[in-house]
């Protein structure tokens, strides 16, 4: 198994809280699931917007082992941003409504991208009352890795400042 011909090199990008023991805790599942650790690049001092430390881990593993490692990391509440070539993103849809959304939608979107890790995928406006009237906007956001709740909270803040309301998606459960 350990010398499987399917073994490849993967880069796993993690974000760890700046606390003693976090790195060790993050590396344990790799060995446990048969991964062979090749290098660890611990970017101390280079904090993410959320105040975490980015860590890049190079390892050799089969694709199956990689999957098991990522699952185990997740189960241990370790933030996995990227594994192999695959970025983990979640798409979130929200609807904003209020007076004159059409006028300042681009500013609102810029504000969302600046204040969160989310990327605005697309926006659809509906302004049946014409410019400046009561209108709505549907926004598709791509958020990095399990940051949905944080992104939505920030979206609420931004909307509130602009006098807009947000209809959030139901983010848990089968019917979300």
């Amino acid at each position: 198994m350990s010398d499987s011909v399917d073994r490849q090199m993967f880069t796993v990008r993690l974000e760890l809280p700046d606390r003693p023991g976090e790195l060790r805790r993050a590396l344990e599942p790799i060995a446990e699931h048969g991964g062979n650790l090749r290098s660890v690049f611990h970017e101390r001092g280079n904090l993410t917007p959320r105040g975490h430390i980015p860590v890049e881990v190079d390892l050799a593993a089969t694709p199956e082992q990689l999957e098991a490692i990522v699952t185990a990391l997740r189960d241990a509440d370790v933030t996995v941003v990227r594994a192999g070539s695959q970025y983990y993103t979640e798409e979130v849809t929200a609807i904003l409504f209020g007076q004159g959304i059409d006028g300042d939608i681009s500013e609102t979107l810029t504000s969302i991208e600046q204040s969160t890790d989310a990327t605005v995928r697309d926006v659809t406006l509906a302004a049946p009352e014409g410019a400046g009237g009561l209108s709505s906007a549907r926004v598709h956001l791509a958020t990095e890795n399990e940051e949905t709740a944080e992104t939505l909270a920030t979206l609420q803040e931004i909307a509130e400042k602009r006098g807009l309301s947000v209809v959030e998606p139901l983010t848990t459960g089968e019917s979300a």
Partner: peptide, 18 residues
């Protein structure tokens, strides 16, 4: 009470509802 019909319409176009 503040939800405009346009918000429901946008939701529906996307396979959702409010």
């Amino acid at each position: 009470s503040e939800i405009p019909a346009s918000a429901l319409e946008l939701a529906q176009q996307d396979g959702s509802t409010i």
